[in-house]
Design a protein around this nucleic acid. Structure first.
Length: 394
DNA sequence: TCTGGGGTCCTTTTGCTG
DNA sequence: TCTGCAGCAAAAGGACCC
């Protein structure tokens, strides 16, 4: 059996814990309601007004002008998250964090220590509440998909068990939207074909969906609809990409200004790579124009890198290739095709050229300063653009 | 009316190579 | 030399999740 743990209205609940005068009020954590952005999390009191995660913050404000609007305080939530994960680690050697506020816990073979899975889940809930003063919802089921579904069915502060013999009875009447991976688009498609419930999806004949869904996609959905999911709990997974992106307060037309942002984003991504010991073999530039059309451009690198300068230059090359005709509302830089381990073969007997060594030294020094004084406090554009001094002619 | 930022995974398109 | 084809990797886009 697998246990899934999900903190209730996490960011908002942490804020209410830190500021008890907010308890019972509609608390909305996210962007500034006067600017651009969305709701990250809101308290259950705010949900009464129809406010939801990912809703444009302006719309949230129209629905709930009396709400308490708070900025995201990521460091605080990360610290609480760490405590929660430590608690989970004390119950099982196999814990897979899914995001900052949820995780899978493999309960197999732990009956001797904690009793049956349901009892173990009970103890996890109690300990999280005791140590963090926060509530969570917990699901217990034979696999990941069902455990996560069980959690959703019991929110907030619930403990829901889906026993193996009850899987189909629980699943069949639920909306297809409950299937992991079926979102707005796919559920609209399925409903247009008369498939509204998981039971109908399970029994749908493949030929009724050909042309609408890929064969693999349908097989995947129908496996989940039958309650089958053989993914294991993985305690550690290598990241596939690291990225940073920024939406501007006002759309930007100036290429010079865009490049300034690309430099900052490249520095953020480079910093993440070095901190976690990864190098990237490809760089992706993401652009979103004022009419909300998003495009990406990728370039593979000859050699894996974690250098701000290489990320920045590559991003600029991608940008220069076809500068967008419209103003931009967002730019992003991503490092992808990640790998660990020592630097690849340099292709020379003498290692990397001296400028690269010097550049790497500068970047690591900046990393230390940023780690000590804050991520955004150091933006040494001058350092990055500095060329080696030119030799004077005699 | 307005739509964040960090990700994962999958499909399709495109271009190269034998 | 040209064409068609298969296989592959890179690139691009899209759906989805929290």
């Amino acid at each position: 059996m697998i246990i899934h743990v999900d903190m209730d209205a996490f960011y908002a609940a942490v804020e209410q814990r830190e500021q008890p005068e907010l308890v019972g009020l509609p608390v909305i954590v996210g962007a500034d309601p006067r600017g651009r952005g969305v709701v990250s999390t809101c308290s259950y009191e705010a949900r009464v007004y129809g406010v939801r995660s990912a809703m444009p913050i302006g719309e949230a404000y129209r629905r709930c002008p009396q709400g308490v609007y708070l900025p995201v305080r990521m460091e605080l939530y990360c610290a609480v998250s760490q405590t929660v994960m430590e608690i989970l680690d004390s119950f099982s050697p196999l814990v897979e964090p899914l995001s900052i506020d949820e995780a899978f816990v493999d309960a197999a073979g732990l009956e001797g220590l904690f009793g049956p899975p349901e009892q173990m889940a009970e103890r996890i809930k109690a300990e999280i509440r005791a140590r963090t003063k926060l509530t969570c919802s917990v699901g217990v089921a034979p696999n990941k998909f069902l455990a996560k579904l069980a959690t959703e069915l019991g929110k907030p502060d619930g403990l829901t068990v889906i026993a193996p013999e009850r899987v189909q009875a629980v699943l069949d009447p639920l909306s297809v939207q409950r299937v992991f991976g079926v979102g707005r688009r796919t559920s609209a498609l399925l409903e247009s074909l008369g498939i509204h419930t998981i039971g109908q999806l399970r029994l749908a004949r493949p030929d009724a969906l050909t042309g609408h869904v890929s064969v693999q996609g349908l097989e995947h959905m129908q496996r989940l609809a039958r309650g089958e999911d053989d993914r294991i709990v993985e305690a550690y997974r290598n990241p596939k990409q690291m990225s940073a992106e920024r939406t501007f307060m006002v759309d930007i037309a100036s290429a010079a200004e865009i490049r300034k942002h690309l430099l900052e984003l490249a520095q953020d991504v480079g910093h993440s790579l070095r901190r976690r010991g990864f190098r990237a073999r490809s760089v992706r530039l993401k652009l979103r124009t004022e009419d909300f059309v998003t495009s990406t451009r990728t370039r593979s690198l000859a050699r894996a890198t974690d250098s701000d300068r290489v990320l920045y230059r590559t991003a600029c090359e991608l940008f220069n290739r076809t500068p967008p005709r419209r103003r931009l509302r967002l730019v992003g830089v991503a490092a992808a095709d990640l790998r660990t381990g020592p630097e690849e073969e340099q292709g020379t007997l003498f290692g990397p050229p001296p400028e690269e060594v010097q550049q790497a030294t500068i970047e690591r020094t900046v990393d230390r300063i940023r780690d000590r004084f804050g991520l955004a406090s150091v933006r040494p554009a001058a350092l990055l653009d500095r060329r080696p001094p030119r030799k004077r002619s005699r």
